[in-house]
Amino acid sequence: MSNDWQFPIDREIKLYNRMDELHRLNEGLEVVGSEAGWPERAVLDLSLACEELVVNIVNYGFPSGGEHPIHVLIQASPNSVEVMIEDGGIPFNPLQEADPLALLDLELEDRPIGGLGIFFVKRLMDDIHYEYAEGLNRFRMRKQFGAADKNDQQLAGGHGR
């Protein structure tokens, strides 16, 4: 992980495994974003990546039910962010799922509902890492803002409607 001087903001958002916690997740990210001076779009992209991972944990992490914490740790600088998401649910490596590239070209009738969340995380973040240790799923991801996006298609896509 990184040195403190690179990330002046160090924040923890503690959530529970419920969908309504997405409000607090988003509020927390907006606060960090405004303190760090991120562009609005960077906050939305990070919000999407975090939501998809947290929703996965809420939906599949605790099949026997009950209330369980999900820790979201954010280290932020004006032009970069590192997020670590930890949960004590069943071991699940979201990166093992194959990208749904073949599905993207299917006709409406044949498109399955769902399966896009982790694909979004991979597309939006620069660097992602999963490990299971000491009974915890630990997902880490990193994003550099400002510089040219590795995702050329996103930039070229724009609003060409």
Partner: peptide
């Protein structure tokens, strides 16, 4: 009338080719 983030998510998902859209 899709806004920027919504348009990009539609595009990442291939929705721009299977759905009807208007400005």
């Amino acid at each position: 009338s899709l806004t920027e983030q919504v348009y990009d998510v539609f595009e990442m998902s291939g929705f721009t080719t299977i759905l009807e859209m208007a400005a």
